[in-house]
Design a protein around this nucleic acid. Structure first.
Lengths: 250, 250
DNA sequence: CCGCAATAGTTGGTGCCCTAACTTTGAGTC
DNA sequence: GACTCAAAGTTAGGGCACCAACTATTGCGG
């Protein structure tokens, strides 16, 4: 039906159809390159390209020397409701709650450094570029495999000399609670969501299967009395996440 | 630095670096395929692949017969605050407000039909699959070019026989106001955000430059007194949009 | 000066080939 | 049975050569 579409897109569409129809279930192996060549009567150039399209879409994943398999995707819900209003039991960190509520085991690494504020961050924090800020890099793991990165910036003008200058177990507690202990009452959260391709370092740190992976980036900024007190870039593989926002109307 | 990276990724990284550094400004033309071949000492296979990577990332755009150019991206902010609480002047439709506030001219087309409720939608609306729903397909334009698609579903059990059974100028008014006129008070909005590759029909309807484009999909559901009364899939080109959410903490 | 046609340059798509590296399988041995 | 090892199958990366279609430029004729 899609008449004059290039061959590699036709083959990609055909395979995509089989996948979304469930005919090729998650974990199933796609026909091999050579089999596709004979089945569709094209050269390897075309079959390679077709498969590359599906890889870029995150639908399939190639295993070197073995085959190309339909990915089993299990989306983790990142829920912004309940987030930062910790009435219930369980972990107080947003990430830990999302992971445990999907039945997985959370873990994280972090590393802090005092740096001069980068331009893009300065605009978000309302400080001058180069002002001293504490940058903390997090890597979050679910069941042992990395699924989320975050880079947080806090103006040292706020936390310098306080017990929470370093976020030690920051990821376990959350910024809101930490700031609260030094009398900074966070009252508003703004999140900006964009989607883009993965950067090379993200591919490495998240163990993504090669290039072209899609990422979702949440630029979160916490405000206290109208002034930004913390901002973070939270980046996650787009095909493993789903963001949920909820608010009252009227 | 990334030593043993494949050649096509090295070249892609090199060009990407020049682009983000501003050395290759938006609108600038990349070196031609043959120039890259001689400059990097590789075959056309490699240069083609490198450029394909950048295209998939949405950084560049090929113009047949002319060259490959750095895309000028201008992100439209889709703000969920103020959205659906219409105190201020101007358009009452969420989309129209987003577009006008960025200085562009909004327009849209829509087309409605009564259909049996698809499975995935039935789960979101809390009705049985096959139940009669009104499906409305929108296409939104900014300055004449299509940038957003939406498909909305309303159970006809709610609107049948009322003045707002058909959303006529629905996009101009917004669902909340329409429902309000028939006494259905929408009190909560839930949005689920996912990112994925574009489907073929979306590529066509949004005039996207070929395949592999990234899309953001917002699955929005309106509730009235705890029951879903409308749900919509809002899909937009990821590189032209930025979603903003804002809520009070504590 | 204007318009037109030839021409050179460019992208998009494809075919065919090769090598390296990895996985799976099966045969054969201990 | 367990273990080794070779062979077959597979992906990943790359090279070279075409052709079609489109664009930009240039030179020529009026």
């Amino acid at each position: 039906m899609p008449a004059d579409l290039p061959a590699y897109l036709q083959i990609a569409a055909e395979l995509r159809g089989r996948i979304v129809a469930g005919e090729l279930a998650p974990g199933a192996k796609l026909p091999s390159e050579s089999r596709l060549m004979t089945q569709f009567g094209v050269s390897n150039t075309v079959t390679k390209r077709a498969i590359a399209v599906l890889k870029a879409e995150g639908l399939v994943e190639g295993r070197h020397g073995s085959g190309v398999y339909v990915r089993r995707v299990r989306r983790l819900v990142r829920d912004s409701q309940g987030r930062d209003q910790r009435r219930r039991s369980g972990p107080t960190s947003p990430f830990a709650r999302d992971v445990t509520s999907s039945g997985q085991r959370p873990a994280w690494e972090h590393e802090s450094a005092e740096v001069g504020c980068p331009d893009a961050i300065a605009a978000r924090l309302g400080v001058e570029p180069g002002d001293p800020v504490l940058r903390t890099r997090y890597r979050y793991l679910a069941d042992g495999s990395p699924i989320q990165l975050a880079t947080s910036y806090e103006p040292l003008a706020i936390t310098r000399g306080t017990p929470v200058e370093l976020p030690e177990d920051g990821a376990a507690v959350g910024v809101v609670a930490r700031m609260d202990t030094i009398g900074v009452r966070i009252d508003e959260c703004v999140e900006e969501v964009i989607a883009r391709a993965a950067h090379p370092d993200e591919i490495e740190r998240l163990h993504l299967p090669s290039a072209g992976a899609l990422m979702m980036v949440v630029q979160r900024t916490y405000h206290a009395a109208g002034r930004p007190v913390e901002t973070a870039d939270i980046v996650m593989a787009a095909d493993r996440y789903q963001l949920r926002y909820r608010w009252p109307v009227d």
